[in-house]
Design a protein around this nucleic acid. Structure first.
Length: 289
DNA sequence: TTTCGTGT
């Protein structure tokens, strides 16, 4: 029987060898992909990418990588749960005109630029046009107009209060600290059944939005805002301060997962405004009033 | 220099 075995072996050995080579390529390729993906994520987000504290279907997201920022896309909410990006004061690009809104085919959901038409809601950027364009250039600016970066926002919030906060981040906090990690996203109603119904087309409408500012480094600082949809828009910004813990409790997300327990407790447990110079900027008027 | 929608 040795002859027969060797015939089988002769027949299969080249196939196995080809399979082995293919597996090797796949392993090396996916290893390289994983290393590169991790490198990009680390460059774009300090202390890790937001993740869920306890996995639930509604905190589940997949990370979409863009030029200059990351978003956590939720297929259940048909929207993004967070956008995360870094800003640096030492490198600025000139900012060109606003490009058009674009569909993002990675979401799979048919979410076209006219998705919110006549709904009473604005297409509100999570990762902002101006700050990203100034920090990361024109290709990144175009990416901020992907529909995966939009959430339905009431006009008085988007064009007034939220715009004032974005302006203060770029004009005051960034020059003050030199570097910022920013994470912004929606907060949804506790009532899951209500959320299923409260939609613009396919997209679930948030009840509020958060924005977390972190100054990275050995002695990090953090400041967090929680802004409901139904604001007037002219309120002082510091009326909306909350702790990072509060936002984590409301969203089920862990925003800085690589932070040690002690560091997280100190940074996220309470509102600390010393050093931010809030009094000077809380009442600045918006650009479009 | 920083947000948008609507109507033409």
């Amino acid at each position: 029987m040795p002859r027969r075995r060797s015939r089988v072996a002769r027949r299969w050995r080249p196939r196995l060898r080809r399979l082995g080579i293919a597996a090797l390529f796949a392993a090396v390729g996916s290893g390289l992909w994983y290393a590169e993906e991790r490198e990009v994520r680390e460059r774009l987000s300090w202390m890790g990418v937001p993740t869920w504290e306890r996995p639930t279907p509604l905190s589940l997201h997949r990370v979409l990588r863009n030029d200059g920022y990351l978003v956590g896309w939720s297929d259940l909410r048909v929207g993004s749960l967070w956008a995360s990006y870094q800003l640096r004061a030492d490198r600025r690009f000139p900012v060109g005109d606003r490009p058009g809104f674009r569909r993002d085919w990675r979401t799979l959901w048919p979410l076209t630029p006219n998705a919110y038409r006549r709904s009473g809601y604005d297409r509100g950027h999570l990762a902002p046009n101006y700050a990203i364009a100034a920090a990361h250039g024109p290709a990144a600016q175009r990416d901020t107009f992907l529909m995966s970066n939009m959430m339905p926002q009431r006009p008085d919030l988007n064009r007034r209060l939220w715009q004032r906060l974005e302006e203060v981040v770029v004009d005051h906090f960034l020059p003050r600290f030199g570097r910022l990690q920013v994470i912004a996203g929606p907060v949804f109603a506790d009532d899951v059944a209500a959320g299923v119904l409260h939609r613009v087309g396919l997209v679930e409408v948030p009840v509020a939005f958060y924005k977390i500012l972190v100054v990275p480094g050995r002695h990090p600082r953090a400041l967090a805002f929680l802004m409901p949809q139904d604001v007037d828009g002219g309120e002082p910004l510091d009326r909306f301060l909350v702790s990072v813990d509060r936002i984590e409790a409301m969203t089920g997300l862990d925003f800085l997962p690589n932070l040690s327990e002690e560091a997280a407790a100190a940074l996220e447990g309470r509102v600390v405004t010393e050093g931010w110079g809030l009094a000077a900027v809380a009442d600045l008027p918006g650009r479009f009033e």
